[in-house]
Amino acid sequence: MSENRISVAKTYKLYIGGAFPRSESGRSYPVVDAKGAFLANAAQGSRKDARDAVAAARKAFPGWSGATAYNRGQVLYRVAEVLEGRREQFAAEVASSEGVAVKKAQSLVDAAIDRWVWYAGWTDKVATVLGGTNPVAGPYFSFSMPEPTGVVAVLAPQQSSLLGLISVVAPVIATGNTAVVVSSQDRPLPAVTLSEVLATSDLPGGVVNVLTGRTAEIAPWLASHGDVNALDLTGAPEAMRADLERSAAGTVKRVLRTRPSEDFTREPDLARLRAFLETKTVWHPMGV
């Protein structure tokens, strides 16, 4: 084969309901590397794309939240396996997106894969750790268990294009939520490649939907959407955070308000799992 072979360039598209459409708006925007060199055109998601993504996430919710925790764990572990196979590709994309050396990029990719494995293992443990029986003062059996909140809109971190992305997406879906993710605006390529991984890892279509584009344009539609149950503000532009929270109040959405400075290389705790869980308490009388 010729040394000068022309490579096949990838078209970076949205990921909605398990498919890879272009933006219905027909728009795209140039993505450049840390030095300003052109990398690709990414789809510039619109309000309509966001609404399609919410509809897909809602449609996927009963199946995904109703799947056994063991099944979700296996699917998520499968994602890690496929991620591992794409390690070099991710390292190259992270290096160019974030302007870090390849070695550093590799360590970020490794941490991201390990993070995914960590959350994959939580699927069938979180109910034991957070739920339990309630020793009520009466002849009743009462227990409480965590349940997924529903459709979660995730504004992914702007800086950490893969490790940050995985650190915010994995905890949302591990517990059975479905997600509409707005990727890092200027560093979206690892998110699109992650979509390709998700699409080939037995993850049902619609469980994760990924929009690339202008965060400030898409976020308000998600924050005010009546069929979105929760909002992760991690990657929200500072100036918009209060407005997005105000919009979210329209349907009493749960809002995760962590700051954009979150250090994703640190070992996580349960906070991101807890943020998108409801507690359901069930009672039944005891007697003969």
């Binding site: 309630n134 009520v136 009462s142 409480s144 308490t281 039944h284």
Partner: peptide, 11 residues
Amino acid sequence: NTFNRFDPTAP
């Protein structure tokens, strides 16, 4: 098979 039960131990 019951209704309106409350207890401080039950969220």
